[in-house]
């Protein structure tokens, strides 16, 4: 028995050693620390695969590495307010303007404003191919949304204060009383507030035969999935209405902004937060360069037969 116990102990020790070695980063710190730009962005930018596609080109061209933290637009902006990002890349105009108005933006040399809009795509209304609400033949996107509401057809809302959620709320008849605050918003049996990311909401719409507003990139990437069509029950019913334009902007973070403490919510004493303005400039200048514009315009053409973003 004693032998067994010691054998078990030795085994445990070996196992933990193996784990330790495996976790040890293989690359020892090099003589020169790589320069890093910290980007706070939204899930839809990251989920579309655009950033992963651009990353190797950016890093080869500039010598900078980029670190992307992605969350809903609300959290992405909050994170920057805590001093966790050099630059933000989001798609919610009103929230971006508030961010700048609060003193968190910085005008990068060569640009006229803090908010640099550089590309756009369109949100699309997707739903069951049979289209019981007749959204396909609506005269405009607002009419399509009205027909969904008046027929009480199930609609899946992101419900997470994301850029997509904000855009969706603007498309409903204001008389419905739908807002981005779940505590005060009107509730309807047909209006499902999912509180999840784009992919999870599309999966839910597919399961329930429901309507959903989505960015085109995420929808196409799931439609044309390597494992096969992940959303066989859904089709694009309405697109290309001006009200569905989805503009992406970058804002460099002001190093002297009134950063706040993530725990107490109070102002941080000056000098607590270090923002790498140089890194933010490099990132913004590269993203607006001809080189990046060409790369963005090509993104999706090979895989989906159409570009997913249009450069401005």
């Amino acid at each position: 028995m004693k032998k067994l116990t010691s054998l078990a102990l030795v085994l445990l020790l070996v196992l933990s050693l193996v784990t330790f070695v495996a976790c040890d980063p293989a690359d020892t710190p090099s003589a020169e620390e790589p320069k890093v730009v910290r980007i706070s962005t939204t899930t839809s930018v990251n989920d579309s695969g655009l950033m992963a596609y651009l990353q190797p080109y950016f890093e080869a061209d500039t010598g900078y590495k980029w670190e992307i933290a992605s969350a809903g637009t609300g959290a992405a902006i909050k994170s920057a307010k805590y001093g966790n990002a050099d630059v933000i890349l989001v798609h919610s105009k009103s929230q971006e303007e508030a961010f700048v108005a609060d003193g968190f933006g910085r005008v990068v040399e060569g640009y006229s404003a803090e908010r640099i809009s550089f590309m756009y795509n369109y949100f699309v209304l997707v739903g069951p191919t049979a289209d019981p609400a007749g959204a396909k033949n609506a005269t405009g996107v607002k009419a399509a949304f009205s027909s969904i509401a008046s027929g009480s057809h199930t609609f899946i809302s992101r419900g997470d204060k994301s850029g997509t959620h904000t855009a969706e709320l603007k498309l409903w008849d204001s008389a419905l009383g739908l807002t981005n605050d779940p505590a005060t918003s009107a509730t309807y049996d047909w209006y499902v507030s999912a509180g999840q990311g784009m992919g999870a909401c599309l999966t839910m719409a597919n399961e329930q035969g429901a309507y959903c507003l989505t960015d085109k990139a995420t929808f196409l990437s799931m439609k044309n999935h390597a494992e096969g069509d992940k959303l066989p029950g859904l089709s694009i019913l309405f697109e290309q209405d001006d009200a569905m334009k989805n503009t992406y902007s970058m804002i460099a973070v002001n190093p002297n902004a009134p950063f706040i403490d993530s725990v107490t919510g109070e102002a941080l004493p000056e000098g607590t937060v270090t923002i790498d303005t140089e890194a933010a400039n490099v990132f913004i200048n590269w993203m607006t360069s001809t080189r990046a514009s060409e790369l963005i315009a090509q993104y999706g053409v090979e895989q989906y037969g159409q570009a997913l973003f249009t450069v401005m």
Partner: peptide, 22 residues
């Protein structure tokens, strides 16, 4: 599915509140 007033629990609500910055 974290659906409001149906399947949302305290933990999934907390996860959502992280995403919304609340």
């Amino acid at each position: 599915g974290n659906i409001l007033n149906k399947t949302r629990t305290m933990t999934t609500a907390i996860a959502l509140n992280y995403n919304t910055g609340d």
